[in-house]
Design a protein around this nucleic acid. Sequence first.
DNA 1: TTAGGTATTATTGTATACACGGATGCAGGG
DNA 2: CCCTGCATCCGTGTATACAATAATACCTAA
Lengths: 215, 215
Amino acid sequence: MMDYKTVSLSDQVFEHLETDILSGKYQRGEIITELQLCSELGVSRTPVREALRRLFQEHLIEDTPKGTMVLGITPKDYLDMSEIRLRIEELAVRGFIANMTEDNRKELNEAVDFQEFYLTRGDVDHLRALDGQFHEIIYAGCGSRVLQDTLAPLHKKIQQYRHNALQAPLRARNSVQEHRAILEAITARNADLAVEKMRQHIENAIDRALNGQEK
Amino acid sequence: MMDYKTVSLSDQVFEHLETDILSGKYQRGEIITELQLCSELGVSRTPVREALRRLFQEHLIEDTPKGTMVLGITPKDYLDMSEIRLRIEELAVRGFIANMTEDNRKELNEAVDFQEFYLTRGDVDHLRALDGQFHEIIYAGCGSRVLQDTLAPLHKKIQQYRHNALQAPLRARNSVQEHRAILEAITARNADLAVEKMRQHIENAIDRALNGQEK
DNA sequence: TTAGGTATTATTGTATACACGGATGCAGGG
DNA sequence: CCCTGCATCCGTGTATACAATAATACCTAA
């Protein structure tokens, strides 16, 4: 899973900028220039440009005559991404069950175990990271590189976008419980049930994001 | 629709390489180096690198210690992409109908008209280009940037991959007829019918690709 | 002959210099 | 006062130089 090469400045800049855009540090419509980023990040234009090209590919930014305009994720984008997930995450779940090895199952199990552990601690940072891992384990094990490549960016953006949703302890508890239910259905190789649980999980996540912080 | 800036070398290199990879000119597993591409294309490393980064983002290539390895599209990738399309192209069709303007409808109509024209000429190059346009008009008019960004790359890769399918005149005729049927359902704003026609169209395309050149 | 170590080479990662083009501001004329 | 044209500046596009790293080949010694 580990790449052979050490993380380059390009990659670091890319992830840094992606995080800042998705987290809202850079507002939609804001103009940023390469030189500005260079001085902010202390690197030359080459890695900055390569990072911007990748962000452009993901349509998180847009070129304008005055520089690079931040686009980011809109509420509608969030709903659209969730709608797509509702349709194809099912494929990933079925693929995961079909290709499941004991190692895969254990990995997924551990992710949920850790979630329950951090839930008792109220450690939202770890919870959020593990929430991402849970789904990415399924993507990685679904047997389809294409499906993985399609779903992983969607989920990453969705997660960052509603990154406040898990802040509420009750929300986090529900989310972990849903993960547990999905895991149990997967472990039982009950694909139909797992798919149904996943669908509920995604729909609930949408509700949580839409309803904001209320219980 | 037109970008404000003229097409850069980076973009040209990107499209050139993407085409060559998808068309099979560069075989899967083949190693290419930046300098090799520079001399082949007569440009410096900067645009080549930026193009490679974008291809990497699309997982068409992979970095290795010896250079850049071509990945391209496998038959399984093709099926996986088609499966995803089957699930979410429906969203695009429904969105297109919901957001349809007279201009949109006309544009789609023209695309099919031209297809029928070029069909009588047996002009497979134009037919292929219009086949792509037909779907991209729907993506562009579906009202969801996310959906467009998800479907467009899939369709581009699928189309390039099975670029021989439309060579057979009978196949091309069927494809155009299917487009006409979809268009009619869309024009009638019959979303359920349009979706069903689209589903058949995608499934037929899969069959055409799987069954190769036989009638 | 073979194994090991070193030197060389090949390739990428990064920084920077130069060129080009559009936007901006200012000045002059209507 | 506004409009137009020119000069300047800002930002990006491209090329190239330099650095670092990893693979390879060769040479030497056992």
